[in-house]
Design a protein around this nucleic acid. Structure first.
Lengths: 150, 150
DNA sequence: TGGAAAGAGGACGGCGTTGGTCCTATTTGG
DNA sequence: CCAAATAGGACCAACGCCGTCCTCTTTCCA
């Protein structure tokens, strides 16, 4: 379905919630309660976000997580890469590791790269802040182009 | 992985192969042999392409398939939609059909739409012809393609 | 006119990936 | 010393995808 994993979606939700109080340290149970998601799931999401460097964990009692950067400095491509791995629409790309049995016949070998770059560029132009802010959706560089096409 | 299904990839390969001889009627076994893919798989791919109107099937003995449009008139978004369904990165979009249990808390509800539009636009701007290998195959007379497929 | 070739449409099971949960070790505040 | 919270995996059920196969219909050709 060309859809991203549910964990990625949760990641955006959690990040957005953290962005509502960027300087506050918030624990996983707290965030779980505020987002309405299950606590173990939120904990897993936060671990992945921390592993990607998007948030920083503080251990110990009264610990929690804090945003490493403001939301408008986190492009969507970073979040997606953290959960889903490199953005590569097909196996026939740089990071695909081969495995295609009919490389010699394949008439589109290596030709997917521009597509992947286009997707990456589009996702790099949208930040998590663009998904969170209620009103000003005005300045989204890549999403702004020709919405009337659909 | 934000990747599209393997069937979609096969679809592009088959379409590209058909584009090498746009006016020739080609059968599923033929195309299977020329692409190196398994014959039942190619048959399935062609049925889906025909259902989406991208190719037209001709029944009966000496039947086969013909491109409905030239490759440069087939945007990638059409092919992806044919195999993977509507392009919707999350369930929380128009065609998602709900199912999200925490809609009342969700801080990003409805905000994914610009992202989806950006992706759709990026994929609508690339055609199957852009993915086809340019020179070597294009210059071979159609009659010689049979030999080239071994 | 009958058989063969090929598309149309659907059904089915194997398999890999994903999601959600849980367990243990480590760190830190009270 | 205990409680709270993160870090890091391990595990298992559920789902979707993929490849195959079956039957029916259509059409060409001997």
């Amino acid at each position: 379905m060309l859809k991203l994993s549910r964990l990625t979606d949760y990641g955006v939700v959690v990040l957005t919630r953290m962005g509502a109080a960027p300087s506050m340290r918030q624990s996983a149970p707290e965030l779980a309660h505020r987002t309405g998601l299950a606590e173990p799931t939120v904990a897993k999401v936060l671990k992945i976000l921390a592993g990607a460097g998007l948030v920083e964990g503080v251990r110990g009692a009264r610990g929690g997580y804090i945003l490493s950067r403001p939301l408008d400095a986190i492009p969507l491509s970073d979040v997606i890469t953290a959960f889903d791995g490199p953005i590569a629409l097909t196996a026939c790309v740089e990071g695909g590791g081969g495995g295609c049995g009919s490389e010699e016949h394949c008439p589109v070998r290596g030709r997917w790269d521009p597509v992947n770059h286009a997707i990456r560029h589009a996702l790099a132009g949208i930040t998590v802040a663009d998904l969170a802010v209620p009103a000003p959706i005005a300045f989204i560089p890549e999403a702004d182009l020709r919405l009337a096409a659909e």
